[in-house]
């Protein structure tokens, strides 16, 4: 009981029994159903899923751009789904948001775009001007203050959008496919900036994406959303190491299915983590147990600077040799499971 309460005090975003139904001409769309999530202070929380799974709807429910059909959204323990419009606006000052299409005001310069949320919040001119200059240098675009969005590249636009979202010192930054319109190297740079912001300013970040690589790159936690439901949720490490659901496996290891289908012999999945991820273990195992191994599929991923590996293997015909090999691997802290 005490343990649970302790966790609750740390949750900066909590979603309870959230349901969102859209009424459309020919009936209704259940965009979200039975969503329960807790996002802790300082986390970089990824929400990933296929197109149409309900990711955007979910993130838009967090700042109530979308009104939940039922359920509650707590920000800092305050139920924002139950407050007046006017109070909600003030709450929104502390929830920054960035978008796939940047959504900068086209008739304002970069500088004036960053000033915009400060004007809205009624910050005095002097302070606002200073804050804008700070933010421009935080995102590395001090020299572009006077440029209009049409004169900026996609990456630069997103940097300005990030600066704008941070203007009122939010506690939370919501990102809806913030890097999906950018090329891979610009994506990396933007993700790095987000990570810096998280580390330097302690801002909790929620990232919506359909790309696993984005989650791998910066997230600490991840929720996999599938057909309006949360399929699986946890730290990136847990979920990547040992995905429980079909959809999670599909998103993490897209090719694994093909490998399994043409297996005659029993195959095993070996999961490596920070203590063990070295192929030398396999070599040593062969030497020590004299059991031969056939590697069907192998891949290594870099999550948060630690390498995690997945390997699908078959062992030699001899059952005893196989058992020995498996216990050898287990002794070396490698997770071994049968592939069905």
């Amino acid at each position: 009981m005490e343990h649970i309460e302790k966790q609750e005090t740390q949750a900066i975003i909590e979603i309870k029994n959230l349901k969102k139904v859209f009424k459309v001409k020919d009936g209704q769309v259940n965009a979200l159903d039975d969503i329960n999530l807790k996002i802790g202070q300082g986390e970089i929380y990824g929400i990933i899923g296929m197109s149409g799974a309900g990711k955007s709807t979910l993130v838009r429910c967090i700042n109530l751009l979308e009104k939940p059909t039922s359920g509650q959204v707590f920000i800092d323990k305050k139920d924002i789904s139950a407050i007046e419009e006017k109070e909600l606006r003030t709450v929104r000052y502390s929830l920054g948001m960035i978008f796939q299409q940047f959504n900068l005001l086209s008739q304002r310069t970069a500088e004036q775009n960053i000033l915009f949320p400060l004007e809205i919040a009624g910050v005095d001119k002097e302070t606002a001007k200073k804050r804008t200059a700070e933010l421009l240098s935080l995102v590395g675009l001090a020299d572009k203050a006077k440029a209009y969005p049409s004169q900026l590249s996609g990456g630069q636009k997103q940097r300005i959008a990030i600066a704008r979202a941070l203007a009122n010192n939010p506690k939370i930054l919501l990102c809806d496919e913030a890097t999906s319109a950018l090329d891979p190297s610009t994506t990396k740079a933007i993700l790095k900036l987000l990570k810096e912001i998280n580390e330097k300013l302690g801002i909790t970040i929620v990232i919506i994406t359909h790309e696993m690589s984005v989650v791998e790159e910066i997230c600490t936690h991840v929720a996999i959303i599938d057909k309006s439901h949360i399929a699986e949720e946890g730290t990136v490490e847990e979920v990547f190491r040992n995905p429980q659901t079909e959809i999670a496996r599909k998103m993490i290891l897209p090719e694994r299915d093909d490998v399994q289908t043409d297996l005659a012999d029993q195959a095993y999945r070996l999961v490596f983590d920070e203590h063990s991820s070295s192929e030398a273990v396999i070599a040593k195992m062969v030497v020590e147990t004299k059991c031969l191994v056939n590697i069907l599929h192998a891949e290594l991923q870099n999550i948060e600077g630690v390498s995690y590996g997945q390997m699908v293997v078959q062992f030699g015909d001899d059952d005893r040799g196989r058992d020995k090999a498996i216990s050898y691997l287990k002794a070396n802290q490698i997770l071994v499971e049968e592939v069905k």
């Binding site: 948001m97 008739q107 809205i120």
Partner: peptide
């Protein structure tokens, strides 16, 4: 662009602020 209006709402803009600071200036040309 509806996205710009949406972004402004997400920043806590009131309907009046959206009219005077977003809709009219953005539609000026």
């Amino acid at each position: 662009d509806q996205g710009i209006v949406e972004a402004s709402l997400s920043m806590g803009a009131s309907p009046m602020q959206i009219v005077t600071k977003v809709l009219i200036p953005e539609a000026k040309p």
